[in-house]
Write a protein that binds this DNA or RNA. Sequence first.
DNA 1: ATCAATAAAGTGATCGTTCACTATCTGAGG
DNA 2: CCTCAGATAGTGAACGATCACTTTATTGAT
Lengths: 338, 338
Amino acid sequence: MTERSTESRRPTIKEVARLAGVSHQTVSRYLRSRNGLKPDTLSRIDAAVSELNYRPNLVARSMRTRRTGRLAILLPTMVFNPARLLHGATEAAHEAGYTAEAVSVIGDAEARTDRLLEIAGTGQVEGILALAPITPGVADHLPREETIVVAADFDDQMRGIGELADASALVEIMEGLVEFGHRRFFHVTGNLQFASARARKAAYLETVDRLGLESAGVVDGDWSGKSGYDAVRSLPDEAMPTAIVAANDVVAAGVIRALFDRGLEVPGDVSVTGWDNNEVFQYLPPTLTSVAVNLEGLGRNAMLNLVKAITGRELEPAPHPLQRVIWRESTGPTTHDG
Amino acid sequence: MTERSTESRRPTIKEVARLAGVSHQTVSRYLRSRNGLKPDTLSRIDAAVSELNYRPNLVARSMRTRRTGRLAILLPTMVFNPARLLHGATEAAHEAGYTAEAVSVIGDAEARTDRLLEIAGTGQVEGILALAPITPGVADHLPREETIVVAADFDDQMRGIGELADASALVEIMEGLVEFGHRRFFHVTGNLQFASARARKAAYLETVDRLGLESAGVVDGDWSGKSGYDAVRSLPDEAMPTAIVAANDVVAAGVIRALFDRGLEVPGDVSVTGWDNNEVFQYLPPTLTSVAVNLEGLGRNAMLNLVKAITGRELEPAPHPLQRVIWRESTGPTTHDG
DNA sequence: ATCAATAAAGTGATCGTTCACTATCTGAGG
DNA sequence: CCTCAGATAGTGAACGATCACTTTATTGAT
């Protein structure tokens, strides 16, 4: 029955000040740091704030401070489930006092770059974390804005940077396969716009070279099962490898299907590995040797770079290791002699 | 070498006005609708805007209009890939002139509800679309805010609402299996906090009843492969169904593995179906009969509800159908006679 | 008791836009 | 030529916070 309950307008700093018997500026000081206020003043304001259920108007604050406290995260739509990556990044942003909002863009690097420029252009966000490939060099061409862009995926020279492109687990996989007696390898890549795909390809080639292995070749794929399937279908019989390293689990699924269609067994004739630790593959025979990735950790660490670029602050990174090889049924000793 | 290029401050409406030789209010009118201006005035402002590369300060606009034009989307972290759902929802929000930001929360309905209240409390967003289960009734308990909350997943009576919980494809699957001669069914549900899981369970029970089928039971799962595996392991030999309807593809993977471990063949002894059309399963034998879901469409339509609740505007919904049954190797004629 | 130095609190301007009014221009009808 | 309505443009306040500066209260040393 109270009349006032219909009044939906939020209380302002001045109403709090009047109720507490101080000036609005004192309340403002109270809001940003409680230091420099007498205990008595402080508790009066405390009471007024909770009585009015006051919350600062963040829009008004942004307007005056010219800081929005907002960051944007550009997500890839394809490939793996980005929700976990997003969560790690959002949480880190929160710790640094920022709000992070995700933007997912279907399409290629160019489409994402357009959207990125649009977001930067509004001046609404202080920084953008690109977790998906964008056009190289775009961070320098921002139209006279001060929005900071950190690409977690690659730098301007198209080199993979940071943990998102860490391919060391692939080396571990290949060394394990060598211990199983494998000498003849094959690799199907992911979409090479992604630094992670390029890093895995580079690690494959480097390891073949370093250990003096044979390679039946590298086929550039696109993270899809079809690319894995087609790659294996096109292998000549006499060039068949004994171990196939796929860029991720979905590609590996295509690879395995193509091997079956050619009458080959996994791992009897050919060992196969993936990446991402897809849950389906943990049950379906042959269960897949894969790489379990701490996506929350990767997201967090990527966001730390952005936070550092904006504020200079260094937050606690995610604990290592972020990637772990899990050996399962799809890999085994070779039955062919080199 | 130009001194002015260091000047990073953005131009304001008044500078545009001065350059165009009009008042700031005329520029303001120009910004919101170009009607009611003389062609000459209009083109002068046009020129000034592009010369200064002016963009309105959205924070200042929000402050005056008390509208932020921002919506939040609460995402589930588990289950399927929410990126596509997110994309459809974001795009629809854009069409309505809103910015949508995604918030992903790891944890249960309670954790998500806490976060939801926090977001609503800041007053920074005009509406929240919850694509994941939240505590029922929370939308009514918002602390004196005007933020509108639309739960796409279920209403206050815990009934599934909208297309997100459309289980009609499950009916189609069961009818198809009946045509294959199946009479004895089994269902493993998803996490029953989700309306989609409850709707599928209800559709299963209703269809068993309507068609006079036998049910070997319903086991409440949690969308995980393990829940599917355990459910099938616990079935007594004499109660083995000839068709198992799993809540999604991951559960189906666990189901299939458990059948294999018991020495049963798919679909020779038991037919199995999933939901989500997981790409891995499109290649691995037995390829899985599943439901391909237009997640962008579901996301879009869910957002349309929020937009309508806020603005009253009705945008174009996604074209039907949003879900489609795809029959593959995991289902076939029953070899047992009823 | 006096004074300077520091702590604590207050005053008014300001951020960039839109709102509510008011003023001016334009053209048709008398 | 005048009047008046409608079209077009201008003026100053307001949104709710912080900033820069000023004023008042408190403390400690002389």
